[in-house]
Simulated assay, not measured.
Amino acid sequence: MALAIFDLDNTLLDGDSDYLWGRFLVAQGRVDGDSYERENHRFYEEYRRGQLDIQEFLAFSLKPLSEIPPPELAELHRRFMEQAIRPRITAPARELLARHRAEGDFLLIITATNRFITAPIAEELGVDDLLATDPEQIAGRYTGRVSGIPCFREGKVERLEQWLKQTGQNLADSWFYSDSRNDLPLLERVTRPVAVDPDETLADHAAARGWPIISLRESSGS
């Protein structure tokens, strides 16, 4: 049984769930519209350029979780899934997961996006486990702080190594699918790295290393 690891945003999803959640909060009037949209866009562009300060971003993105009561968060996320996420799960992404599942592989999503946003998405996709950035909770409410190591860049490698020790899994026969230069530290660790609709830096790196480059976008380009 192989370990098949998948990035989420712009890999299995045709879009970035963290960025989309921020835009959804703006549309729902749950944050200050203009300033939040501006900062949300700034952080997304910094991420795309490989320049994101993860701690600064998490202070920004986790704050609304601490300000909205849990029952309202649950209802917001239900609508978010319906309106913003399910339409962005492409048929090729579902087919890739299905192929690995049929081979008996263990399916793991590893993502920098926080667990509040991504756990329902991982459930929708039917994977076996999820590693994500964990928002701190006290007495059932989010604090706006992060718990443990953010699941980002080298932090993904650290979190995966912890998970491997806990589960007895290993990287001896492993895949990792990602779109982003930010995932190069983990792509270099697995047996079979695959670039998925990659950014320019990752595309160049994959071509130089002879890694497969694939697309999970719909054939129509939508």
Rank of each mutant, 00 (worst) to 15 (best):
R181Y: 11
A195N: 12
H41M: 12
G140W: 00
N40Q: 11
R88T: 03
D197Y: 01
S174Y: 00
L202W: 05
W163T: 00
A203I: 00
V146A: 15
L20W: 05
G210K: 11
P92D: 12
I121S: 03
L3A: 12
A59S: 14
L171E: 02
N10W: 02
W21I: 05
L131M: 10
R48W: 04
D32G: 14
A102W: 00
L184I: 09
T191S: 13
L130M: 10
L187A: 09
R86K: 15
Q166H: 08
F43C: 09
F176W: 07
P69Y: 06
S222I: 08
L160S: 07
E37H: 09
M81E: 11
L187V: 03
N170A: 06
R209K: 15
G221H: 03
A206F: 01
C151R: 02
P92G: 09
L73T: 03
T143H: 06
S35T: 10
I117D: 02
R30M: 09
A172W: 02
D32M: 11
L107G: 04
G104L: 00
G126Q: 08
L97W: 01
T90V: 03
I5A: 15
A119E: 09
T113G: 06
C151P: 07
A122T: 02
I109G: 06
R101T: 03
G50T: 07
I54D: 11
R78S: 15
D32E: 15
L58E: 09
T133D: 07
K63N: 10
V31C: 09
L65Q: 06
G221D: 10
T191I: 01
G144M: 01
Q162R: 13
L73M: 07
A195D: 10
D199A: 05
E161F: 01
E37A: 14
L131K: 04
T111K: 03
R88D: 13
E161C: 07
S219V: 05
T11F: 03
C151V: 01
A84E: 14
F176Y: 13
A91E: 15
V190H: 13
R115T: 08
L25N: 01
E136V: 02
S35L: 08
E82W: 02
Y47Q: 07
E46L: 08
A98E: 13
R78P: 11
I5S: 15
G168E: 02
R181E: 11
A203K: 13
K63C: 07
A102S: 15
H205Y: 14
F106I: 00
Q83I: 02
F60E: 10
W175H: 12
R192G: 05
E72L: 12
H77F: 06
E72D: 14
L52E: 13
A208V: 10
R99P: 06
R145Y: 06
W211V: 10
R101Y: 02
D134F: 00
G104I: 01
E82C: 04
E103W: 00
E95D: 13
T111C: 03
A102P: 04
F24D: 04
A119G: 05
